[in-house]
């Protein structure tokens, strides 16, 4: 039993109980209007403050990670996107990193096989991360149907693509698949379970996992689980739910009667995630754009990176030193660059 994930689990379960209890005693206004507004406010201001704080911090050294051959002689092949030398290559490198998580793809695992050390491609973290992030993005974009009226065509298109597979299970006792199954929701749930299990099961990963790793995973699990539950199993009155969300974004908050408690639990989880976001590791959303190991040019051989912390240092060059002490140096028999006579003649000419 690991304290770190138990603490996170208890925290998420506690949040669930808070929302559930709050709604049962009639605090729909608090959980449906006040907390979501506060959460969005905390998210937006916290996010901006965090990024502006980062923008103020200096980058004293050029510390790009080099993943390949730097630009050198023309007959040595330059790894353009692993060791970018131009702005264009840098943008390509950043785009590949942000959109395809290229550095996770490089992950290798050391293994001793038959007394020989070998490196194997370890791809599952990359696959899980890619599935998780893109499924989550799709889920978030899809949710704009609850915040727009009329729903933009692009959101409708996304919904159509997402519900492309028609999975229907029909038994008199058990039915699943109507309304249409969104693949992204199921992929999100599966990926978040994989990423959480990975941290719990693999000993080396468990050792470096903290409560701040488990908490967001479990919270997102809670969000995905309640969302899937209320779409396919314990259905809620979706139009009442949209009335509430539309009320929020049009600043005419209303709390229609008859929305199940599971909706408020879902909304509370999302609010907690939003409020927690700017103060957690989830800020890698902005951080990935700002990490100096990725977004700096690996051109330290051709350009000098000037430390912005540099202030004008008062220097005393050797020339000035010799000028000051030449006579004493000659007296003491120390070698000088300009002999005494030469410097005297030079002074006379001037």
């Amino acid at each position: 039993m690991n304290k770190k994930y138990m603490v996170s689990f208890i925290a998420v379960f506690g949040l669930f109980l808070i929302a559930w209890a709050g709604v049962s005693i009639g605090l729909q206004w608090v959980f449906g209007v006040i907390i979501p507004y506060l959460a969005v406010l905390v998210f937006a201001t916290g996010f901006v403050r965090r990024v502006l704080g980062w923008s103020r911090s200096a980058v004293p050294f050029a510390i790009p990670t080099t993943g390949g051959q730097a630009k050198s002689f023309p007959w040595i092949r330059h790894a353009r996107f692993d060791c970018p030398d131009s702005r264009f290559d840098l943008w390509v490198r950043m785009a590949l990193e942000i959109l395809t998580f290229r550095s996770l793809f490089r992950n290798t695992r050391m293994k001793l096989s038959g007394g020989k050390l070998s490196y194997q491609l370890e791809i599952f973290l990359w696959v899980g991360a890619l599935a998780f992030h893109y499924a989550f993005l799709t889920v978030i974009l899809r949710h704009t149907r609850f915040f727009t009226e009329p729903v933009p065509w692009c959101v409708q298109l996304l919904e159509n693509v997402d519900s492309f597979f028609r999975l229907e299970i029909i038994y008199p006792q058990f039915q699943f698949g109507l309304p249409a199954v969104y693949l992204s929701g199921i992929v999100l749930l599966a990926a978040v379970v994989y990423l959480a299990l990975r941290r719990i099961v693999i000993p080396s990963v468990r050792y470096i996992s903290l409560a701040s790793d488990f908490f967001p995973l479990l919270l997102i699990f809670g969000i995905a689980f309640t969302g899937i539950m209320m779409r396919y199993v314990t259905k809620i009155d979706i139009n009442a739910a949209k009335q509430l969300t539309m009320g929020l974004v049009t600043f005419h908050p209303t709390v229609p009667a008859g929305i199940g408690a599971i909706f408020y639990i879902h909304l509370f989880f999302v609010s907690v995630l939003l409020a927690y976001f700017p103060y957690s590791k989830l800020m890698h959303l902005a951080g990935v754009f700002l990490s100096p190991t990725r977004n700096m040019l690996a051109s330290t051989r051709s350009y000098r990176h000037v430390n912005p912390w540099n202030y004008p240092v008062k220097v005393h060059t050797y020339e000035e030193y010799e000028e000051e002490f030449r006579e004493k140096m000659v007296e003491a028999g120390l070698p000088v660059d300009k002999p005494l006579e030469a410097s005297a003649e030079a002074a006379e000419k001037e």
Binding site: A44, L52, T148, H252
Partner: peptide, 27 residues
């Protein structure tokens, strides 16, 4: 960075400016 931040906020707060505070009656 500030440009990126502004773009991010515009995208994230899309529902707020898309509806511009008008009341949407339920069906």
């Amino acid at each position: 960075i500030v440009t990126g931040l502004v773009i991010f906020l515009i995208i994230v707060l899309f529902p707020f400016w898309y509806n511009r505070g008008r009341a949407v009656p339920p069906p």
